[in-house]
Structures are given as C-alpha cells and as structure tokens.
Design a protein around this nucleic acid. Structure first.
Length: 421
RNA sequence: GGUGGAGUCGCCUAGUGGCCGAGGGCGCACGCCUCGAAAGCGUGUGAGGUGAAAGCCUCCGUGGGUUCAAAUCCCACCUCCACCGCCA
C-alpha cells in the first residue's frame, strides 16, 4: 500500500505514477475522498464514544431519578455509537479496497512504457562463438542425462521434470554456492515454508493482478509460494525491528510454484518455464532512506554470482508498466541463451520501499525513537532450474561435453569438464 | 484426529461487570549516591490513530454477542502446552 501521508501532501505525484504505469489516475481522487470520509467518521465515532464513557462512569454513583435519567441517555448514546461504528467500518473498508488497488509509486528515472520499453543499462561478459551444432539445453540435458522431462510430464504433467544424476548434482552445487556467497555477504541463511497463509500472500502483493498465477490449497486455506520472498517478507510481520545496526538481510531457500496461467505456448520447450523450481532468494529489511542504495547492493551481488558462473548477461531497468504492483523499481539480469540467440531473465531484484511493509506491518524505530514503516527489497540469487538450463547451453563444448565454471567445481568433485553420460 | 489446560503492556505475574488502559516484580533508561562500580534510593518505561500541543479515541490472542458499562459474562475461531492416536 502506498503512503497515505504522501497521497495527502502530494496527490499529483501519485496520479503521475498511475499514468506512467498505465493505471487509472482517477482512483487517486477516489482514495482521497474515501480517506476524507473515513477521517470524518473516525472523529464522529470518537466523540460519541467519549461522551458515552463519561456518562457510563457516572451511573454507579447516581441514585433514583438521576440514575434513571443517566441510563436513558446512556442507552441512547449506545445506539448512536453503534451506528457511528458501522459507518466507520464501512468507511475503513472503502479506503482499504481503494488503497490496495493502487500500485506503488514508481521511482524517479524508471523508463516509461510497457514490457518492450525496458532499458538495457549494462552488458557484462562476452558472448563467444558457438560452432555448429549449437545444442539447446534440452539436447544437452539428454546428452548428459541431467533432466528427465518426459517422465516429469508422465508423473506430474506439462512443465514438470525430474533432475537426474548431473542435473541433481548441479542443483545441489548451485544451492551450496549461492548459500555460501550469501553467508559471505552477511545474509542469514534461511530455509523457509513453501505454504503460507493468505495474509502473507496478500501482504506481499501476490493476490492482486497476479492471483491467477498462484496455487491455492483450498482444503487448508493455504497458498503455495511462487518465491520465498513471501515467507521472508512475512517473517517479521507485526514486528518492530531494530535497524540501527543496518539492514536485516536474509537468503531464503525454498521451492517455488507458479501456475503460469496465460503463458500457454510460451517457452514450452525444456525447463525454461516450469510450474515448480527451487530458488535462493535474497531479502532485505532497511530504512526507506537506505532502500535505493540497498537495491544497488542486491543487484551487485546478483551480478557477482552470474559472473562467477561465467555467464554473459545484461542488466535491464524494467519499465514502469512492467514493474508489478509492489515495486518502485526493478532490475533484471538477463543471461545469454545461445540456442535462442538472445538474453533471457535469470534474476530480478525489486525495491518495494514501504509498500509491502505497510501491509505486513513491519516497522523500525527511527533516531527520534518513533516507529516508522520499514522498506523491503528482494532479489534472486539463483533460480536453480533456469540457471541449470543456461549453464548447459552456455558452457557446452563442440563435442557435447560441459565446461564447469571454477566456482562450481568444489561441489562437483573438482571436475573442470563433464563428459556426456 | 481425540481429550484436558492456557493466552494480560520486552519477560513473569495481579486482576470474575463500573475509580482498570490495567497493579506488582524483573529487565531497561535517566538521575542521586560512589574515585569507579555493585547495592540502595528516586523518576520513567507498550502500540496505533488524530492533533502544533494539551488532550481525545482504539487495542488485555482474533472476530462476534450480551450490557448504560466487558480484561472480567456468552459464542466461534486461532495459537501454544500436556497426554493419547498416527507419522518422516
């Protein structure tokens, strides 16, 4: 949710953000009006409650006629309070509905436009030549018996797979490397629940426009997370954090489940887009004034990780229309897939500012001792399955063998090259 | 899944309808004392909304209800603990 104080003091800023996102700016005025109505309702109810309290306190001391009179007045007030509270509840609900429907206020400098308007801000590494035949990750996976897609479909359906042999080893190697890097950077390693309550899902903004993306377990009113961001964000919900020593940083490992609704026919080959994969995700709670710098820090760690895997990639500044409801800014790292002859998303980092923390009620104490809403940021360290696909393609050798980046060797028995199985 | 017990301001705890938004202890902060510390003494010490401030309002697991009035009575739910059943 956006900051209502910002809305009151600078509604034009919020309207402008709505426009650049391609959302309806009129909602801003609806929210302002609803907010005004709520404030009036609250103040009316407060006044009545105060009066009722005063009279109620006089009742036990009064006797006879006087007592009867007091009780009569109190009874009337009681009805008034009830009515005022009904109005207040309705006004609250109206504000909440509108408040939730307005996405975060985009940061200055975010490229305007939609999916195709994102801006490449940096390219890292060089794409080498791939002599024929260039194999895609499916062919490489078959050659190395690393991924069993057919049996994944047999057992679980389309977009499922088994990691077998080398594939399984690669996953464990990547998880170990990512977690080790995370610890090196001072993040707390976490293994987090993949099933969460509706509040956690709602609080992180995943039940808005993308609700259809999410698996729900109806019998228990739980959701399967699409990223450990959900559990990590909700980890400190309803808490007041001590951020005086700097941001609180976590690296969470969990499976991720995505329905991929509306992506039929998109990336159907192999394991590039799947319903389930494992991921190591970074998450940070910090002061809002530190959020932009923290965002750069997370991006830096993502770049370092991809570089250590010797994957050429580019960094993209995501355009406003493609940000998602929670983020004020988002950078994706897209790595080169030789079979597709283009860069594809491997990691993504978002600065959500106070949007999630306000919903989840995560706060900290400022220097003056006042509680303030914290900022949250998230970033992919390693989305395992897609990274495996990328490694298989990028590091293929003409003879079908696989070059192993030095960083992964400690977890793969020291091998520099892996021959087909 | 079954049965029983419990959820009060960081922690422990008092509180069975009105002077209780809430007493005590611990902890913590500040002050006094001290060369310094400990002990002792004093003062303060939950959160949210609104307001320039004083203040006012809300919150005793959550949500309903009864009542002029609810931490206190009633209902539902959640969580935790214990035992039983089942299980990695």
């Amino acid at each position: 949710m956006i900051d209502l104080r910002l809305l009151r003091s600078d509604p034009e800023r919020v309207r402008a953000s709505q426009r650049i996102r391609g959302e309806d700016p009129a909602l801003v005025d609806d929210l302002l009006a609803a907010d005004e109505r709520r404030r009036a309702a609250v103040s009316a109810a407060d006044g009545l409650r105060a009066e009722q309290k005063t009279i109620s306190k006089q009742v036990p001391r009064a006797t006879g006629e006087q007592r009867e009179e007091l009780l009569r007045r109190a009874k009337g007030l009681s009805d008034d309070v009830r009515a005022a509270e009904v109005e207040q509840a309705a006004a609250d609900e109206a504000v909440r509905t509108l408040h939730r429907s307005i996405p975060n206020v985009v940061a200055d400098g975010v490229p305007p436009g939609g999916e195709d308007d994102s801006v490449v801000i940096e390219t890292v590494g060089t794409v080498r030549d791939y002599p024929e035949p260039v194999r895609d990750h499916v062919e490489m996976a078959e050659l190395h018996r690393a991924i069993d897609i057919e049996r994944g479909a047999k057992v679980s359906g389309a977009r499922f797979y088994f990691l077998t042999g080398l594939g399984a080893q690669l996953e464990l190697a990547l998880v170990n490397l990512a977690m080790a890097k995370a610890a090196e950077h001072g993040l707390t390693q976490m293994i987090v629940p993949a099933l969460v309550k509706p509040e956690a899902m709602e609080g992180t903004g995943f039940l808005g426009a993308h609700a259809a993306e999410v698996y729900k377990v109806d019998a228990d009113d739980l959701y399967l997370v699409g990223t450990s961001e959900v559990a990590l964000a909700a980890y400190h919900s309803e808490e007041i954090l001590d951020l005086s020593a700097g941001p609180r940083r976590y690296a969470g490992f969990s499976p991720c489940f995505r329905r991929e609704a509306g992506s039929y026919g998109k990336d159907t080959k192999g394991v590039f887009r799947v319903h389930w994969f494992d991921k190591v995700e970074m998450f940070s709670f910090c002061r809002p004034e530190d959020a932009a710098a923290e965002h750069q820090r997370l991006l830096g760690w993502e770049k370092e990780f991809l570089t250590s895997l010797e994957l050429p990639f580019q960094v993209v500044d995501i355009a406003a229309g493609d940000l998602g409801s929670s983020a004020v800014r988002k950078y994706d790292c897209e790595a080169w897939f030789p079979s597709q002859q283009r860069y594809r998303e491997l990691t993504s980092t978002s600065n959500c500012e106070t949007f999630q923390a306000r919903r989840l009620n995560v706060r900290y104490r400022d220097d003056a001792g006042r509680t303030q809403v914290a900022a949250t940021l998230n970033g992919t360290l390693c989305a395992i399955t897609r990274t495996i696909a990328c490694l298989l393609e990028v590091h293929q050798q003409p003879d079908g063998s696989l070059h192993v980046p030095a960083a992964l060797r400690p977890w793969l028995g020291g091998a520099e090259v892996l021959e087909p199985a």
